[in-house]
């Protein structure tokens, strides 16, 4: 479904991503891990359409991926994903209102139908009891559940998650993993999830991409960019490989901090 051909990303002299190529089939759940600042979020932005490749191409069904966000590709950010001025239910209903009317306001029976649909979806993500609250009254985990419900109501083919659970407690994070896996299976989504938590990558989804630099020039640390150094099927690979990745990323992180 998605074809990534020799994609490069540069900001001036800084190479962020170098020569990334991959093919993704419909229904895959890909977890992107890597050191912070390695370009995995930039890569996700290219898939989303808010950023573009300096060189190379990303094809969706054989056509260049649209350079603007659209309803085919849902997204959940780490924060600010929901609208603070709408209550929980309205936050989900608004997607249908955007879709169905010119100005973005539904009335009467159409509005009622959209509200019922949204309420059903909120039930699935476990927010049924919070329908009339505003996002600022919710906990971080609830807000992310809301963001997921909002992203799913229009049934996008692709769901992009940019460190969606980075700010959550470990316990809540586990619940959220369950939820995402569940929804992914049910809605037959293609999911890309960026995370800096390797463990999350090890047991979520079907495929793990590790972003890292293949070449490092100590004199010019930005001369080379990151590419996909490991492309592994999740659940099939050996524990040793995971430890190895863990090791290599950990040393890189330490080196950065020094």
């Amino acid at each position: 479904m998605i074809e990534i051909n020799n994609v490069w990303k540069r900001f001036g002299d800084n190479v962020i991503l170098e020569n990334i190529s991959a093919t993704v089939k419909e229904g895959e759940f890909i977890t992107l891990v890597g050191a912070s600042g390695c370009g995995k979020s930039t890569f996700l932005k290219m898939l989303l359409g808010t950023d573009s490749a300096s060189q190379g191409s990303i094809l969706l069904d054989g056509k260049p991926i649209p350079s603007e966000p659209d309803a085919e590709r849902g997204v959940v950010f780490q924060q600010y994903s929901v609208f603070p001025h709408l209550n929980v239910l309205e936050n989900v209903v608004i997607a249908r209102e955007f879709e169905k009317t010119k100005l973005g306001f539904l009335w009467g029976a159409a509005k009622k139908a959209a509200r019922e649909e949204a309420a059903a979806l909120l039930d699935v993500v476990g927010l049924a009891h919070m329908k009339n609250r505003y996002p600022d009254e919710l906990s971080g985990g609830m807000r992310q559940r809301l963001a997921i419900a909002q992203a799913l109501i229009l049934k996008p083919r692709i769901l992009l998650l940019d460190e969606p659970f980075g700010a959550l407690d470990p316990g809540i994070r586990a619940d959220m993993h369950e939820l995402v896996l569940d929804l992914w299976r049910k809605h037959k989504l293609t999911v890309f999830m960026v995370t800096h938590d390797l463990k999350e990558g090890f047991h979520l989804g079907t495929r793990l991409w590790v972003f890292d630099k293949r070449r490092v020039d100590a004199q010019a640390p930005n001369a080379y960019g990151a590419s996909i150094t490991y492309d592994l099927p999740v659940g099939v690979c050996e524990q040793e490989i995971l430890d190895e990745i863990d090791e290599s990323l950990a040393t890189k992180n330490q080196a950065e901090q020094v």
Binding site: D70, E97, L103
Partner: peptide, 20 residues
């Protein structure tokens, strides 16, 4: 992020101005 989110929900510029 909110503007991007609205776009992923299919909103056009006018809808984003009016509703967001």
């Amino acid at each position: 992020e909110q503007l991007v989110k609205a776009q992923t929900l299919g909103a056009n510029s006018g809808q984003i101005i009016l509703r967001v």
